[in-house]
Amino acid sequence: MAIIIDNKARIREKAKELFIQLGLRRVSMDDIANSVGMSKKTLYQYYTDKETLVAETIEMILKSNSINCETCREKAKNAIHEGFLATASVSDMMRHMNPVLLLDMQKYYPLAYKKFLQFKEDFLYNFLRHSLEWGVRDGLFRKDIDVNFVSRLRLESIHLPFQLSFYDAMKTDLGTLQEEIFILYLYGIATPKGTKMINKYRIEKQKPFTDDNK
């Protein structure tokens, strides 16, 4: 049983690398088998179809992201610091991500896309809402903002870099686009006290969390 679990984890990790680089649709089971160093017949002993592998790999990525977000919250000094830490962590991964990944998921892999939507609504929305409420309490974000509305606005803005027409027009990587959108979002809701804090953290570049510095 331990060998099976280990091999499945190894397959998912290699699949993740290929999916991030190339998107979901362009990667075949042959590609994954070759990357892992096993025959396709052996691969099918662990994953009988690509849709299941895609769904479990996306679930692995989402779980890792949620853990990173919680780690950022634990280490953050305030809501703005939390946002910078979380954005640095996500942007680091997204610098190497193919923007077609989300579109592929939506069009061709409904099970994986359902997991993504559930993560977005159940975890990410509440994470953003908590951060806004924290910032308002500390006087970093304006008291007149509608927390539910702004949480939703920020949540949906995360999709923007994955719009291929927008991505192509901006001529930069997904990570940089996410960082710039995040900065504009912060300045739009910040108090004068919060603006000073934003300027401070922009100068003090935040490092993404790794196994070495968690």
Rank of each mutant, 00 (worst) to 15 (best):
I203V: 07
D30Q: 14
L102V: 14
C72K: 03
F127D: 07
G175W: 04
Y185N: 10
I198Y: 07
D49T: 06
Y167R: 07
I145M: 04
K50N: 08
L132V: 05
L53T: 01
R95S: 10
N126S: 05
A76S: 13
M105V: 06
M94S: 08
I11T: 00
C72M: 09
M197E: 15
M94Q: 11
F162H: 11
L43Y: 01
R152G: 15
L101G: 08
K41P: 08
T210L: 03
L24F: 01
H96K: 14
V147A: 05
R25V: 13
F209T: 02
M197V: 15
R10F: 10
K114P: 07
N65T: 12
S91G: 07
D146V: 09
Q106W: 11
N78Y: 00
A9N: 15
A88E: 04
G188P: 03
L101N: 01
S151C: 06
M170V: 13
H159S: 14
Q163L: 12
K50E: 04
E82K: 14
S28H: 04
M29F: 03
F141Y: 14
L117S: 09
F149Y: 06
T71M: 14
R26A: 15
H96R: 14
N126M: 05
E204I: 07
D30W: 02
Y47S: 02
Y113D: 07
A169L: 14
G135E: 02
Y109V: 00
Y113V: 02
V147W: 04
M1N: 09
N65C: 12
N148V: 11
A190F: 05
I198T: 07
Q118L: 14
D146T: 02
V100F: 09
S39A: 09
M97R: 01
K40S: 10
N68V: 10
N34D: 13
M170L: 15
P161I: 07
A33I: 02
P208Q: 00
T57E: 01
N148I: 11
L24S: 05
Y167V: 02
I4F: 12
T71K: 13
T71Q: 13
T42C: 08
Y108K: 08
D146K: 08
K200G: 03
I183D: 10
T210N: 02
Q118H: 12
F182S: 09
R202N: 07
R10E: 10
D212T: 13
R95Y: 04
A2I: 13
N34Q: 12
V54P: 07
Y113M: 10
F116I: 05
E13S: 14
I4N: 11
R12L: 10
E121W: 11
E133P: 00
N68D: 15
T210E: 05
P99G: 03
E179V: 06
S66L: 11
L53Q: 01
Q206Y: 04
L62A: 02
K207A: 14
A33D: 06
S157L: 15
R202I: 09
F119H: 13
A9F: 12
Q45S: 13
M197H: 09
I183T: 10
R154C: 08
I181D: 11
A190E: 03
G139Q: 04
K8Q: 14
N213L: 02
T87C: 15
L160S: 09
D146W: 04
K16A: 08
L140M: 06
L155C: 01
K196M: 09
K120Q: 11
